[in-house]
Amino acid sequence: MWAYITYFVNATVLAAALRMATPLIFTSMGGIFSERSGVINIGLEGMMLTGAFMGMLVTYYSGTPWVGLLGALASGAVMGLIHAVASVRYKVDQVVSGTAINIFAVGFTVFMLRTVFDVAGTSPAVPRIQSITLPLISRIPVVGEIIGNQNPMVYMALALVVLVHVFLFRTVWGLRLRAVGEHPKAADTVGINVFQTRYIAVIASGALAGLGGAYLSIAHLSRFGDGMTAGRGFISLAAMIFGKWTPFGALGASILFGFADAVQMRLQEVGIPRHFVQMGPYILTMIALAGFIGRATPPKAIGKPYEKE
C-alpha cells in the first residue's frame, strides 16, 4: 500500500508539480491584482499566450532569455493596458474585453510566428533560462529533491507570492487596491483615484500573466508552439478563485492543480483515464464557487465599471 502511495506522491512527482504550478502561480497572482481592483480578467489566457510568444521572440533576437523575460513582461503589460483602456476608460463589458483579448492573442501569435519565421506550429529553438542547484538546500533529503534543483523562475514565483501578500495586506497601496475593488465609491470619497488604481492593477495583471507565459516558452521549454498555454490562463483563473482571491490560497490551488498535471500520466498507467484528472481543477472550482467547500466570494465591485459622479 505504502509503495502504491509513494508511486504517486514522491519527491520526483512533487518537484514536477512545482514546475507545472509555476506558470499558474505567476498568472493567478496577476489575476488577483486585476480582480481585487474590481476588474474581471478572463483575458489572462491571451495575455499569457502573448507573453509566451514575445518572450521567445525577444530571446531569439537578443540571445538572452532574461531579456526575453522583460519582453514578455512588457508585452503582457501592453495587453493589460488594452484591457484597462477598454474596460475602465470605455466601460466595455469586462468579459467581452477579455474574450476579445484571448481571440486576438491566438490570431496575433500565429500570424507573427508565420510572418517572422515562415513556419507553422513551432518556433525555432531559443536559449532558455537554465535550472540552478541551490547550495545546501539541495542536500536536504526529500525537501532538497523537491525544491533544491529548479528553474530560477520557480523561485521567483514563490517569492512573488510573498511579495503580493505583503503588498495586498500590509501596505497602504494594497489597502487602496482592495478598497477600490470592494467599494469604489467609498474609496473615491476618501481621495483614492479609482481609475488610476484599476489601470495600474490591470497592467500589472497582464505583466505577470506575460511572465507566466514566458515560463513555458523560455524556461520550461525553449521554443514557442501555437496555443502552447493550452488553457493554463483559465486554470490560473480557477486557481485564483479556488484560493479565494488570496495569494497563498492561489499558491496552494496552483500546486494542487500542478500536482494533478504531474500525476496524470502515472494515474493513466493504473487505469484512471487522464482526461478525468484534467477535468479536476475545473470541477473543483465550480464546487468551490457553489459554496460546497468554503464559499469563494469575489470582490464586491467586480465586473462593474466605475462611473464618477
Binding site: 466595455v92 476579445a100 483579448i101 481571440i103 486576438f104 490570431g107 496575433f108
Partner: peptide, 13 residues
C-alpha cells in the same frame, strides 16, 4: 489566415 482572427477580435472590441 490568422489575419481574420485578429480582425474578429478587433470587431468584438
Amino acid at each position: 489566415r490568422e489575419l481574420v482572427v485578429i480582425i474578429q477580435a478587433m470587431i468584438i472590441m
